[in-house]
């Protein structure tokens, strides 16, 4: 059932996102071509220089728009699940966690693809992938397994952060869905309140960590970390952060799922 939900989710979002992506790609290619042509000319009138700068600025704005559209489409999918679409999707014999999982996986995948796509667009704008790919190849070859593992860990950490971002939106939608009217407004307010709470929580936790560190003779710990060498120290720190973010994600997921099973209230 999860794969079917994923397939359906993917198709629905692709219908909107692929055309946008295509448009952005074409615009970027055109701008890149203009750059390539104009950069080889000297003493152009100021007007042309200005237009070129404008064009590049617009290209960057268009990228931001693309990212925003990606997030918006994926969040809207979830919002609609608790609205009109729920009558179809939530009637399906699928557990609620599968609905959340399908939406989350799909949203994260699109965001990662979106990020990669923007890097590609950046290269196109400067017409500089040759150097880029060569560099990448070189550095890849020179990587030690340890560094590679660390990179994977960083990626995992970023992914967990990304999932957390979407789970924030989902939880906000879930809270908004509890209201009879003005659900959109309620969801938006819930999102900001959640953000605020998370901020406070992180600050408090950070402070507690600092106090704990002082209380528990942190210097000894520091020494331990230093003794292991800085590379492993970074890895440990990353692991702790990753675990923290994952726990946060799990809590958000659990509350969303609880709202959708025990407190479901379709408009």
């Amino acid at each position: 059932m999860l794969t079917k939900l994923l397939k359906y989710e993917w198709k629905t979002t692709a219908r909107v996102l692929l055309p946008i992506g295509g448009g952005v790609l074409i615009f970027t290619i055109l701008t890149g071509l203009a750059n390539a042509l104009l950069n080889h000319q000297s003493d152009l009138p100021a007007m042309v220089d200005f237009s070129q700068a404008m064009l590049n600025m617009i290209a960057v704005l268009v990228w931001i728009f693309l990212l925003a559209a990606c997030v918006f489409v994926n969040v809207r999918q979830f919002y609609k699940l608790l609205g009109e679409q729920g009558y179809l999707m939530l009637s399906l014999p699928a557990a609620v966690w599968k609905h959340i999982a399908a939406k989350l996986i799909c949203a994260c995948a699109w965001s990662v693809i979106g990020g990669a796509f923007l890097i590609l667009c950046g290269c196109i704008l400067n017409m500089s992938f040759g150097g880029m790919s060569l560099n990448a190849g070189d550095s890849m070859a020179g990587l030690q397994p340890g560094i590679l593992a660390a990179l994977c860990l960083v990626m995992l950490f970023l992914l967990a952060l990304l999932a957390g971002t979407y789970l924030d939106f989902y939880l906000a939608c879930g809270i908004g869905g509890q209201f009879g009217q003005q659900r959109l407004l309620a969801s938006i307010i819930a999102y900001f309140v959640l953000g605020f709470i998370e901020q406070i929580l992180s600050t408090v936790l950070m402070m507690m960590a600092v106090f704990a560190w002082v209380a528990a003779d942190g210097a000894a710990w520091m020494q331990f970390l230093y003794s292991v060498d800085s590379f492993w120290a970074t890895i440990y720190l990353l692991l702790i952060l990753l675990a923290f973010v994952l726990v946060l994600d799990a809590i958000k997921w659990a509350i969303t799922q609880w709202l959708m099973t025990r407190r479901l209230n379709l408009a």
Binding site: G86, L90, S91, R262, L264, N265, L266
Partner: peptide
Amino acid sequence: LKISAGLLT
């Protein structure tokens, strides 16, 4: 009917 269909608690 909505409660019976599992769309409302």
